[in-house]
């Protein structure tokens, strides 16, 4: 218990200290990299709620990155730069989409659930491609970052701290949720559905609620991501994105609070290393050739994830 608190504290301090250090060293690139990682960590944290704690293997979490991104992008395109409005639309819109997708897919289970969430996300991807007004296949540039009173996201350091704060908030929210009565039902239904039914729980509404909450948080990550990249394309919703977010959760450790964060860092750093830092040009150019088998091996031999190294599951 004590060591875990210390680890968390050290981790937060490290992240908080990064901007001044990176700028001092004249390496603003790291600021950018870590900010991007933390945005994906939020997406992974939200997926962990339904995948890790709820047992719902959703292969469509990128859908909410997309909906959140498009909500911000479309509003900005029409001249609405107010961040509260944009992010509110991103969160609300993703929640609605999650409600629609979840209502249909949670009635099924197993392989059907995987295929259906994947299919619906692909549908949204094609929808994005067909929106010619908003750039279609090529996407569009975000004219300006979301505008808030008092907080200026155009300042990269400020934006960094906003993302850090929201990531910590996401961890805290999921922590509270899974330990609440609601979370108990969600986890119980994953642990032993027949038993949950026998004592009188009907899992459907709880699963759907979790699905919607996760979707809303995914939408927030989407709003952050489009501000980060300043560019919006249907690729936000590409099916490989969904797979990557899923890998972050697994790599870090399902149903743990540190897992998705650790997974996001590990996955994106490995990706970054393979594609940019390795001294062999062949590896840098064809990094996916190496990432793929690495992922297969991690599934086969590294089942418990990074958080498993530090100890048991926490709940």
């Amino acid at each position: 218990m004590k060591t875990r608190a210390i680890l968390w504290g050290a981790f937060v301090l490290l992240l908080a200290a990064l901007p001044p250090v990176a700028l001092e060293l004249g390496q603003p690139f790291y600021l950018d990299l870590v900010r991007r990682i933390m945005i994906f960590a939020i997406a992974a944290i939200s997926l962990n709620l339904i995948l890790g704690y709820g047992g719902m293997v959703s292969f469509g979490h990128a859908a909410y990155l997309g909906v959140g991104g498009y909500a911000v992008g479309i509003l900005a395109f029409h001249g609405f730069d107010n961040g509260l409005l944009q992010w509110g639309a991103a969160i609300g819109g993703s929640a609605l989409v999650a409600l629609a997708i979840g209502a249909v897919s949670i009635r099924t289970s197993g392989v059907y659930f995987i295929m259906i969430t994947l299919a619906f996300t692909q549908m949204l991807y094609y929808l994005g491609v067909s929106l010619e007004e908003y750039g279609g296949d090529d996407g569009m540039r975000l004219r300006t970052r979301s505008e808030f009173p008092l907080v200026d996201l155009k300042d990269p350091v400020t934006f960094y701290y906003v993302v850090l704060g929201l990531m910590l908030l996401s961890i805290f929210i999921v922590f509270k949720l899974v330990n609440s009565r609601f979370g108990m039902v969600l986890r119980a239904a994953k642990s032993n559905e027949a038993r949950a039914l026998a004592i009188g729980f009907s899992p459907y509404p709880y699963r759907l609620a979790a699905f919607v909450i996760a979707g809303a948080m995914g939408g927030l990550a989407g709003a952050l991501l489009v501000n980060h990249t300043s560019y919006l394309t249907p690729d936000f919703m590409h099916w490989t994105r969904s797979g990557e977010i899923m890998f972050m959760v697994i790599l870090g450790g399902m149903a743990t609070h540190a897992g998705p964060v650790a997974g996001a860092f590990a996955f994106l750093l490995v990706e970054d290393m393979l594609s940019a830092w390795v001294p062999l040009a062949f590896v840098r150019e064809h990094w996916q050739l190496f990432l793929g088998p690495l992922l297969v091996l991690s599934v086969l031999f590294f089942r418990r994830g990074l958080a498993g190294i530090f100890g048991k599951h926490d709940g």
């Binding site: 949720l177 609601f182 119980a188 949950a196 004592i199």
Partner: peptide, 25 residues
């Protein structure tokens, strides 16, 4: 529920009977 403690198993059953499971915090 194998991952839960003995007490949590029973508390879940109490909760199932009590209703009020849509408490999120």
């Amino acid at each position: 529920f194998p991952e839960f403690s003995t007490l949590e198993n029973v508390a879940l059953a109490v909760q199932a009977h009590a209703g009020h499971s849509l408490r999120f915090w």
